[in-house]
Amino acid sequence: MTVRYTEQPERPLAPVGEVAFHQWVFPDGTLWTQFFRQGAGYLLRFPELADFEVSADGCTVQGFPAPGVPSPTVEHLYLNQVMPLALSRQGKLVLHGSAVEIGGQGAAFLGESGRGKSTLAASFATEGTRFLTDDGLLLEWVDDRCMILPSHPSIRLWEDSQDALVGERTAMAPAVCFTSKSRFLAGPGIAFCDEARPLRRLFLLGEAQVETPTIEPLRPAEALIELVKHSFLLDIEARDMLARHFDDLSRLAALPIYYRLDYPRSYAALPAVREAVIRHALEQSESIEHEFV
């Protein structure tokens, strides 16, 4: 990763003189993140939790915990929210998604928070299929191949997912205070892939409207819209950068790799989901290889 991060001593979250140029709000109306300009750079505020100062080029981040907020919470916010945003300012492509390695290639899962992308990645990883990231899907073109870069080797899960998938086999990172998710470190019991893998499948997670796993192709235009919706973007007003970002996503959308994956959200269904995904990814890989023979 190419972001330099330092955590500073805690400080009160002082009122900011100007109006936020962007914000993230939960569906229930709770304010999650405010985006302010600060000189040439940015101030990202997570109310009652922390401030992060991001340099104009997205290469340097400083975290300031609010009084009483533990360091793991701030580190967690940095890894899952702020670092992807900083990378986007460097022109990198980061999506809200998880990814695993199947047959030496990458299969990614895009979805909003709560759609099950971390649970699905963890479900693969606890069964020996290595995961590349549980959120913050970082993509990079190398020659003509789009590669998934591995993230930090941890998976965050809600408590019910932990009980169902992980049990007591795995080392746990310190819990964070703003969510009932905990962060698990990779290790025995959770397999992690620490090398880049070519992106071969990108599954958009559906709304659990089915009784058995289904996989349906997406049109390129549908894929482009989903890629836009699931992008991390720090500065939504930097037009040149937005245009470049849209170009990058259009190039990505033209790949024949997009499918909508839907399945019932029960832990009992996960083995069938894994089997369907693995079979689909391997079939497609074989047919792609045959095209080049």
Partner: peptide, 25 residues
């Protein structure tokens, strides 16, 4: 508007207002 952009993928075009997140095929 200057923040509205269009890109063509396959045989469709997607118009997008990146600032508001509004899109149209």
């Amino acid at each position: 508007p200057t923040q509205v952009m269009a890109r063509t993928v396959g045989d469709e075009t997607v118009i997008l207002d990146l600032a508001s997140g509004t899109y149209f095929g």
